[in-house]
Design a binder for these strands. Structure first.
Length: 784
DNA sequence: TTGCCTATGGGTGAATATCC
DNA sequence: GGATATTCACCCATAGGCAA
């Protein structure tokens, strides 16, 4: 304790603003603050306060509930006339003045106290408004964003904020609504492409890259003043391969969307702010360097974390945690994990995330851990949620209720959450919220947890040492580590390594982020289609020229091809030619089939359309069959049951492994095929069909085509206006489908009508919904 | 979907290193 | 020098890729 104080004094004196001295001082502050018993000491309080003020990192004082008043006892004393005391008094007075000076300097115009690094970023932006910031998780990147928007309110009329996932959109919509209201700003906050907006007033779009593309397609000349892109490393698939475990084939990877959106917006808006964690800005690829130069972008790299990270070597026979030690009884990886978990549980060391390498591994690990974990106290909301999962997703098969073999249910009952990309969005976010604010203390997850979602975990345990089949990159490891301890919640985050290789790898820093559009490397055809020839380099220029020639010769209107930016233009041309050569009668019948959902479903039009894609080589015969069966099955009101039943029928034994794999497959199929791929193909088809029909030589009226409605039906899975709105906010789709079937009268209302008359409809809703669903619905209504 | 094949990673025991 | 810890090499189970 005495050592700690003298170390603290020494480090305060040695602090000179360098990363190194910052880290040393931070480690001491965090170590002391993490040990609450030391905090009672008035001297410790004063020193901690001074240290944080000196670092201009005010979060530490907020977390320790320290402010200048801790010095007041000295001030309020009646000083005698002795000279020493006067000096002392003088010293304290100047301390207060100094403190006030610091605070007013670091208080932003919106009234928030900013850390030194945060303030610096805003100043740099105001000097040169194109910025790339690399900063660790929970550094406050969106906090800075709000400050930038506030300071530039006058000339930021239309703003786009880009986040990688829909759940992040919802989180940020909430925050920005509050920001907009609290500071009296006049932005309309728009997060879906369906929502109408007035281009001449102030708009704040909070979109995924896909939604940005759609916005730009529909409003090609729309003026954007400023945009923000979070997790900007996603433009480079080599750098980040988190998505590849999703089972998506190469051509579906998302990096292209990020690249194209960043390319288009950079050319459109003069001001932007790009952010991402752990980007080594001294090792940017050739293409990224050109991008920086071309757009005159300033780079800021924040290397040091605010939270101290304890890296705990757990691959050997023992693990040392501060002064405590675990001596492993067994050398098996799984038993070590169990020992770590029970250590953390017993010593009340906070919430933990366990990293597993695949969805399957998440379930198997869960099953092995659950047997040694203690049962938790009953928790009202958790129980409601479990009841709901059972009610909506469990069925009886061969006289067995399948949820009894569903690992998720078993683990939730024991206070363990599972998290991976396959679960429906609302299940993912409920599990996260039960982990962050509820009774779940352990979360077993894949890289899905790094998708920008914030958690309150203090510990991370590396069980998995790869990602799907692939090797974890240094970047991935850092990103997962970033979840250990959260600034403003913890001083220390712990990372347990069960594999030495992972710990070695995290020390290296050899990942290179590139923007291949501007590089000499071979880019994809889709990149070529969306980039101006003058911006390309190397062989890509010639490739683009060749393609342009083919496109020109085809005679197909380029504006039509541009509407679907993510599909190879040459393939689109092939499709146009295919449709052109069809018999007029066949085209007419397709148009009729697409005129209403009823016709579409009755004629099994989906097979015919997917068949066209097979003809041009975008799909295989197997895909067409599979996509067709799954979408048709799911489009029924008992779609979930049909998909699960299909797998159950071919099952020889009901056990946890087989049931888990059924749920994972069904959930993944719904996300991948029903909600993503099929709508994508239908959208292209719709565009091209309308184009072909409008050609003078064909000339078929297309006014009746309702393909947009059909697409939305598949994409969201529901039919009514109210259902669509509810689905968008994150209400369970299975539940909406049930309501659409059983409560037709109720579902005829508009969302606004339900909102304002909820007290009258309440009873009717309660009859069909389970208590968790009622809770969700009431939350949605309360939030408006 | 199914089944085969390959790559991977975990477990095991022997060999080597390290510590007292 | 002995005991313990760590590393290494090998084997096997398994998951995931791939093709029909």
């Amino acid at each position: 304790m005495k050592n700690m104080i003298s170390d603290l004094v020494k480090s305060i004196n040695h602090f000179n603003g360098s990363d190194n001295s910052f880290e040393i001082l931070r480690n001491i502050i965090c170590d002391i603050s993490d040990n609450k018993s030391l905090l009672n000491e008035p001297l410790v309080k004063e020193l901690l306060y001074l240290a944080a003020q000196k670092m201009r990192t005010f979060g530490y004082n907020t977390m320790n509930h320290l402010d200048i008043s801790i010095f007041q006892n000295v001030l309020q004393d009646n000083y005698s006339e002795s000279t020493d005391e006067e000096i002392e008094r003088h010293h304290n007075l100047s301390l207060i003045l100094q403190n006030e000076a610091i605070n007013s300097l670091y208080t932003s115009s919106s009234g928030n106290l900013l850390d030194k690094d945060q303030k610096n970023i805003i100043e740099v932006f105001n000097e040169r408004p194109r910025l790339l910031v690399s900063a660790p998780t929970s550094f406050g990147k969106t906090y800075i964003l709000r400050e930038i928007i506030y300071q530039n309110y006058e000339h930021f009329r239309n703003i786009i904020l880009i986040f990688p996932t829909v759940s992040l959109l919802n989180e940020n919509v909430h925050e920005f609504k509050k920001f907009n209201r609290d500071l009296g700003l006049e932005y309309s906050i728009i997060n879906t492409t369906q929502k109408k907006f007035d281009p001449d007033s102030r708009n704040l779009f909070i979109f995924t890259p896909e939604r940005v593309l759609q916005l730009l397609n529909e409003n090609p000349n729309f003026k954007i003043d400023f945009f923000f892109m979070d997790e900007v490393y996603k433009i480079d698939n080599f750098f980040d391969s988190t998505d590849s475990s999703e089972g998506s084939s190469k051509e579906e990877e998302r990096d292209k969307v990020f690249r194209i959106v960043l390319y288009i917006l950079s050319k459109k808006a003069t001001q932007f702010y790009l952010a991402g964690p752990y980007i080594n800005t001294t090792k940017l690829g050739e293409g990224f360097q050109r991008f920086i130069k071309l757009f005159d972008i300033r780079i800021i790299e924040i290397g040091v974390e605010r939270v101290k990270k304890d890296h705990i070597h757990s691959w050997g026979t023992r693990a040392t945690i501060g002064r405590k030690q675990i001596i492993f009884k067994d050398n098996k990886k799984i038993s070590k994990l169990n020992e770590i978990i029970s250590f953390l549980e017993k010593s009340d060391e906070g919430k933990s995330i366990i990293y597993a390498e695949s969805k399957k591994k998440v379930s198997t690990l869960a099953r092995e851990i659950v047997s040694v974990t203690n049962t938790i106290e009953p928790h009202y909301k958790l129980n409601m949620f479990i009841e709901h999962l059972i009610k909506r997703y469990s069925y009886t098969h061969r006289n067995q209720q399948i949820h009894k073999s569903w690992t998720l249910i078993e683990t939730l009952n024991k206070g363990i959450g599972l998290h991976h990309g396959a679960f429906p969005k609302y299940i993912q976010s409920e599990i996260l919220s039960l982990f962050n604010n509820g009774p779940l203390n352990i979360l077993i997850c894949t890289t899905s947890i790094t998708e920008g979602v914030n958690t309150k975990a203090k510990n991370v345990v590396f069980y998995g040492s790869s990602k799907g089949g692939k090797e974890l990159k240094c970047f991935d490891i850092k990103n997962i580590n970033g979840r250990a301890g959260r600034y403003y919640h913890h001083f220390i985050g712990r990372i347990f390594y069960l594999d030495k290789k992972i710990h070695e790898k995290v020390q290296q820093n050899d990942d290179t982020l590139d923007f291949i559009t501007f590089s000499n490397r071979e880019v994809t055809d889709i990149d070529l289609d969306n980039v101006a020839i003058n911006d390309l380099w190397g062989d890509n220029k010639a490739r683009k020229a060749d393609r342009e020639l083919v496109i020109l010769e085809s005679g197909v209107d380029n504006n039509v091809l541009n509407k679907n930016k993510l599909i190879d233009k040459l393939k689109q041309i092939e499709l146009v030619n295919l449709l052109k050569n069809k018999n007029i009668l066949e085209l007419k019948s397709i148009v009729t089939q697409c005129s209403s959902l009823k016709n579409f479903l009755e004629n099994k039009t989906i097979y015919k359309i997917l068949g066209y894609f097979e003809e041009v080589g975008l799909l295989t015969e197997f895909d067409v069959k599979k996509f067709g069966i799954i979408t048709s099955n799911y489009s029924n009101s008992d779609g979930m049951y049909r998909l699960i039943k299909y797998h159950l029928d071919s099952l020889d034994e009901i056990n946890a492994k087989s049931i888990d794999s059924i749920y994972t497959t069904v959930f993944s199929d719904i996300r991948n095929i029903v909600e993503y791929k099929v709508p994508k193909y239908l959208t292209i088809f719709g565009t091209l069909l309308e184009y072909v029909c409008s050609l003078p030589e064909i000339n078929i009226g297309t006014e009746k085509i309702a393909i947009d409605f059909i697409i939305r039906f598949f994409e969201i899975g529901v039919q009514t206006e109210l259902g669509t709105e509810l689905a968008e906010i994150g209400f369970p789709i299975t539940t909406i489908k049930m309501l659409e079937k059983e409560e037709r009268d109720l579902m005829k209302y508009s969302f606004d009508a339900v909102k304002s008359n909820y007290h009258l409809l309440k009873h009717q809703f309660q009859q069909s919904l389970d208590s968790y669903e009622v809770y969700l619905l009431e939350n949605i209504i309360a939030e408006g």
